[in-house]
Design a protein around this nucleic acid. Structure first.
Lengths: 110, 110
DNA sequence: CAATCGAATCGACAAACGTCAATACGTTGG
DNA sequence: CCAACGTATTGACGTTTGTCGATTCGATTG
């Protein structure tokens, strides 16, 4: 795989997938973003955080039935993709959903 | 990973990811569908077919820069996920996008 | 500063994935 | 029915991914 990293800050390419041609780079970038979502554990995490408004990392291992290391790994993937935002509060890590980013995915899929 | 196959015919779970809790099974099913989309080659294929209305398998290897075998493999994934529909015309295979399926993905991401 | 606690990182491993050459399958046309 | 052609499948290979135990890092608190 290419080594180019996903730019979580830049806006997603906006050409809708169904109505105009996308470039190879756009396809690669969008694939990376979709890949970040395409895992049951990560979807569960996004769902938990979204429905609660926010969530503490301390609660996730038991909530999704995975180890602390695995949970942290998935959270990292989601943050790197720009889907989650991390915030340190004291010694706890809190996360919330970047809804703009999800809206961008929806938009591209139109 | 579980071996349960993706049911391309059944409707996708409709609980929006951001507003209500999804089950483990729903997360697994949605992850499978997103995974089918989360590849640059497959996105390119969907994009090509969608913008043209339909597409012949014979044109894809050169269009995406992959071998015939690889292209066929990706088309198979997309069909299995219900994103593409295959139609045999003489000895050529034609594909079109199942837009309802993509709309379902968009809906869940809301 | 030292001890403690939450979370990220490392190292390792099995499973899944993307890729292609070679082969098998199906349809068409002679 | 046989040769030709388009497509799917098989088998193999290297890479990526998900997972966890162990360790490290950071922040808090005594």
């Amino acid at each position: 795989m290419k080594t180019k990293t996903l730019s979580s800050s830049t806006e997603l390419c906006c050409t809708p997938l169904l109505s105009s041609q996308i470039s190879d780079d756009d396809a690669f970038e969008l694939a990376g973003l979709l890949k970040a979502l395409a895992d049951p554990v990560r979807l569960k995490l996004v769902n938990l955080i979204a429905t609660a408004g926010e969530g503490c990392a301390c609660d996730f291992p038991s909530a999704v039935g995975k180890s602390q290391a695995t949970t942290s790994h998935h959270l990292g993937q989601l943050v790197k993709a720009g889907i989650l935002v991390r915030e340190q509060r004291g010694k706890w890590a809190w996360f919330k959903v970047n809804e703009e980013r999800l809206a961008a995915v929806r938009a591209v899929l139109a």
